Amino acid sequence: MATNKPLSYLRFLNLIDALGRMNPGKKLDGIEENLLDKIVNCAHTKESILVGDLIALSELGSQATLHGRLKNLSAMGYIKMVANADGRKKEVVPTKLALKRYEEISKCLEKAIKAA
């Protein structure tokens, strides 16, 4: 007997794909998505995260790769880097554009669940 759970997930994937096609210039690769997930999650839990913390995530790639991806996220308008209290380290924070992206993803998830 089949359940609707796999269908809900497939609906969610289709909605996310449609969302990506609506914003073709802002396509993120897997590493960028993982970094942005981490940054937004830290902002949501009111934890600060520094550039150094992010480029130390060796499971996502080399330091050079991660630094490049952070530069890409900044250039696309998803994050900004601000000096912390002592000015020597940079804290990474999501922009309104990034938060809007997660709101849209949440709406896709809600639609997929309601359709089940």
Score class of each variant (00 low, 15 high):
Leu15Gln: 08
Lys5Cys: 06
Leu57Phe: 03
Pro24Ile: 09
Glu47Cys: 04
Met1Leu: 13
Gly52Asp: 14
Glu110Asn: 06
Ile105Thr: 07
Glu47Ile: 06
Lys96Ser: 07
Asp17Gln: 15
Asn41Leu: 07
Lys27Met: 08
Tyr9Val: 03
Glu32Ala: 15
Leu10Cys: 12
Asn23Cys: 01
Lys89Tyr: 06
Ile55Trp: 05
Asp17His: 14
Glu91Val: 11
Ser62Ala: 06
Lys80Glu: 15
Lys111Arg: 15
Leu10Ile: 15
Asn4Trp: 15
Gly52Leu: 05
His67Leu: 14
Leu15Ile: 04
Val93Phe: 00
Ile39Tyr: 00
Leu28Asp: 04
Glu91Tyr: 01
Leu70Thr: 06
Lys96Val: 11
Leu70Ile: 11
Ala75Asn: 13
Glu33Cys: 10
Asn34Val: 05
Glu91Cys: 05
Leu97His: 10
Pro6Ile: 10
Arg101Asn: 05
Arg11Tyr: 11
Asp17Ala: 15
Lys71Trp: 03
Val40Cys: 00
Lys38Gln: 10
Glu91Lys: 10
Met22Arg: 14
Arg88Leu: 04
Ala83Arg: 12
Asn34Lys: 14
Leu7Gln: 14
Val93Thr: 09
Met1Ser: 15
Ile16Ser: 03
Ser8Thr: 10
Gly30Phe: 09
Leu15Arg: 13
Lys89Val: 03
Pro6Ala: 12
Ser106Gln: 07
Ala98Cys: 14
Ser8Gly: 08
Ala116Phe: 01
Pro6Val: 14
Asn84Trp: 07
Met76Gln: 08
Gly20Ala: 15
Arg101His: 06
Cys42Trp: 00
Val92Arg: 02
Leu50Val: 03
